[in-house]
């Protein structure tokens, strides 16, 4: 439904997006991850036809955004960064305006606006000027606007920013509910969000795609993948750690102390499963283990290892100064 081929955007000497390519099929929810300034928003602006790419194409349901902008834009629902909306309009006026522009009229428009207002839970602020709404409501009005015409492709730039935990949970539920019949791209820097709603993740930094895979693929790249955490009731954590380090398949052992609770984190070699061996060994040795958890891998850890090298020059510069 959405195909992006070698998108490049240059602002003068700066290359913000440097040859980004990917395709999103119906039913996919793509999490677009990257540090600030990585080119996420710029890529989204090109997909939605706000910025013209320096080179490359974005094709939405068979319509090139450059050569058939109207046909392409009709099929996109877009929540721009910061969820902008006309502050002096009420929610109802604003949605009515967008519906009109999108070609929805009369009964159909009212039905659609009513449906979306219920779905996104903004029915109680319909007659309030947008400038008086809280950040969370404003964000939801922005999402509502993007959904009015039931688009095939949904591009959401930080859809849960500014929402409280309950609202975030709700918004993710809505995105999941919508996903079977749409191609959805959401940008975020919340890694938990990727795990909660996305079935695919792309990490971009320095304008390039560094990783493209499922959240599970990503997690598998973490050094925490298949690591085992042990909670110890008592005993000498240092001795136990030393013994564990000698075991085959164990790459490293770290001693952790969480609120007085002694514990160990056992990293596996090459991410191989080691929990069975450790459980058996612990029982053999009679260690006072009160809890044992297997880590799937930490996305934030992967995110840091992948994107940190690219940010290094900047911090090095700061240090020099």
């Amino acid at each position: 439904m959405l195909e992006i081929n070698h998108l490049v955007k240059k602002f003068g000497p700066l290359t913000a997006v440097d040859g980004v390519s990917f395709a999103v099929a119906e039913g996919e929810v793509l999490g677009f991850l990257g540090p600030n300034g990585a080119g996420k928003s710029t890529t989204m602006k090109m997909i939605t036809g706000f910025l013209a790419p320096t080179s490359g194409t974005a094709v939405i349901c068979g319509h090139d955004i450059e050569t058939e902008p109207l046909a392409a834009k009709r099929r996109i629902g877009y929540l721009p960064e910061g969820a902008p909306a006309y502050p002096d309009m009420t929610t109802a006026e604003f949605l009515d305006f967008v519906a009109h522009i999108r070609g929805l009229r009369g009964v159909e428009a009212r039905r659609r606006i009513g449906y979306i207002a219920d779905l996104i839970h903004i029915a109680d602020v319909m007659h309030q000027p947008i400038e008086t709404l809280s950040k969370g409501y404003r964000r939801r009005v922005g999402v509502a606007q993007a959904l009015l015409h039931d688009p095939s492709v949904l591009i959401l730039d930080e859809p849960t920013d500014g929402l409280d935990p309950n609202q975030k949970y709700e918004m993710r539920g809505i995105i999941r509910e919508l996903s079977p019949h749409k191609a959805i791209v959401i940008s975020t820097h919340l890694l938990e969000e990727v795990e909660a709603v996305c079935n695919r993740a792309i990490i971009i930094a320095g304008g390039r795609v560094l990783v493209d895979g499922t959240p599970a693929d990503l997690a598998a790249r973490s050094r925490y993948h298949n690591a085992v955490r042990l909670d110890l009731a008592s005993g000498d954590a240092a001795t136990i750690a030393a013994e564990l380090r000698e075991r085959p398949g164990v790459a490293a052992v770290e001693i952790t102390a969480d609120e007085g609770q002694a514990g160990l984190c056992v990293f596996s070699q090459d991410g191989q499963p080691i929990s069975d061996a450790i459980v058996r060994f612990a029982r053999e040795r009679g260690w006072p283990v009160t809890g044992l958890y297997v880590e799937r891998g930490r996305l934030d850890d992967v995110f840091r290892t992948i994107t940190a090298p690219l940010e290094l020059p900047r911090s090095a510069l700061l240090n020099a100064a």
Partner: peptide, 14 residues
């Protein structure tokens, strides 16, 4: 200033 230009110009209008 308010950023609505991005919303406005990504609507299907010429």
């Amino acid at each position: 200033r308010s950023g609505t230009i991005e919303l406005f110009l990504t609507l299907p209008i010429r």
